Computed example of a mutant assay.
Amino acid sequence: MSTTGTPRPGPLDRWYEAAGVRTGVRRVFHEESEQGLVFFPEELVPYLDHPAVGELAPERRRELTVRHLYQFLLSTTHLEARVVNAGAAEPIANGRVGLDLTPELRLDAFKVYCDEGYHALYSLDLAQQIAGATGIPVPAFDYGGFVEQLAEAGRRQLPGEPVLAALLQAVVFETLITSVLNQLPGDERVVSTVRELMRDHAVDEGRHHRFFAGLFQELWAGLDRPLRIRAANAMPGLIHAALDWDLDPVRGSLRLAGLDRPTAEQVVRDCYAGPAGTVSLNRMARATLKLCASVGAFDLPGVRDTFAAHGLGDGTEDPR
């Protein structure tokens, strides 16, 4: 596939003037000015309303919300560096994906690489600041199991196509709708440092969404029909892998809050499966589904049935 030709305006054209890593400031938590605010809204913690969790003391519930924030921040540090950067941004930037790429696109990929590394840095930085201020330790989860789970999903869905699988996985990650980034910046109940960091991240990710959506369309145009069919039928599995929570940190947090192992397992089963999970899946994947529709993926043999078998529509539904 060739992407050479006249350069077109792109989402990263003003990166030197607009990117957070170029223009932002370090977000520093000031405990004395944040009294009475929360680190993470209770309604965004899926298991906090579970009856078994509702019986916990208020301080244990507060710790659960803080550790839930840690999970978001730590998953960012790992997935941005180990999935998006290692699997897509760096190989694209260095011309290692078997595509005839324009110099502009390769430079844009390095801009994404810088952004994602910065997101990883400031997410870990804020987690450590909050741990120091609250005395609630950052749990020692390295998310390596989840990263390997993603890699295995790529091998399973697209055997023999490791580069394509990694690129599609990055496209999925960068086009998902993350409710945390959308909702937290405007929630004045939340400490300002967390809101500001989420706002910084969301602004950068808006540009990345457009970059990876454009990359997907270019990539798709260069696939022959048999590989398009394989790629389209692989997408539901890749979406599921990206949106399947790494539940070990959830279990660990519930155990730290005082629940025994069987009760923690029951909470996880109740809160991360079933119809509610399917609705959430379609809501978060809606932009990715529309991207698939934009290239005609659902018109290929078997694709609608494959998406339906995974509980996914084509992006035209209104998931509520």
Results as ranks from 00 to 15, higher is better:
A287Q: 12
W245Q: 15
H240G: 12
V250N: 04
G302A: 09
L238H: 06
C292F: 01
P249K: 03
G237A: 07
A273C: 05
P236D: 00
T263M: 14
C292W: 02
M284W: 13
P275M: 03
N233K: 14
C292N: 10
R269A: 12
L223P: 07
D248N: 00
A273Y: 03
W245E: 15
R283W: 12
D248T: 13
A234K: 03
L254H: 03
S294G: 03
R261V: 14
I239V: 15
V250S: 01
R269I: 02
W245D: 14
R261E: 15
L243T: 00
A287G: 01
L243R: 01
K290M: 13
A264L: 09
S294T: 09
L291D: 02
S294C: 11
R230V: 08
A276Y: 08
S294V: 05
D246N: 14
G296K: 10
A264V: 08
I229Y: 02
D260F: 07
V267E: 03
N233H: 11
V279Q: 04
R283T: 04
L281Q: 00
T263L: 11
D246Y: 15
N282Q: 11
V267F: 03
P249W: 02
G274M: 04
P226I: 03
A285F: 00
S294M: 05
T263D: 11
Q266D: 09
D260W: 10
A232N: 12
L223G: 05
V267P: 00
T278C: 07
R261G: 14
D246Q: 08
R255L: 15
P226W: 00
R230W: 02
C271N: 09
V268N: 07
A293V: 08
G258M: 11
L291P: 05
C271F: 01
L223Q: 13
L238V: 06
L247R: 05
I229M: 06
H240E: 05
A264M: 07
L289D: 09
C292L: 07
H240S: 06
P275D: 03
A234N: 00
R230T: 13
V279L: 12
N233L: 12
R225M: 07
T278E: 08
G237K: 04
M284I: 14
V250G: 02
V279P: 01
L289V: 09
I239R: 00
I239E: 05
L281Y: 00
P275N: 09
A232L: 04
I239F: 12
A285T: 04
A287L: 13
R225F: 08
D246T: 12
I239L: 13
L281M: 08
T278W: 02
L243E: 03
T278R: 13
R228F: 06
D270C: 07
A242N: 06
P249I: 08
A241M: 02
G252A: 07
R230G: 03
R255N: 10
G277P: 12
K290V: 11
L223W: 08
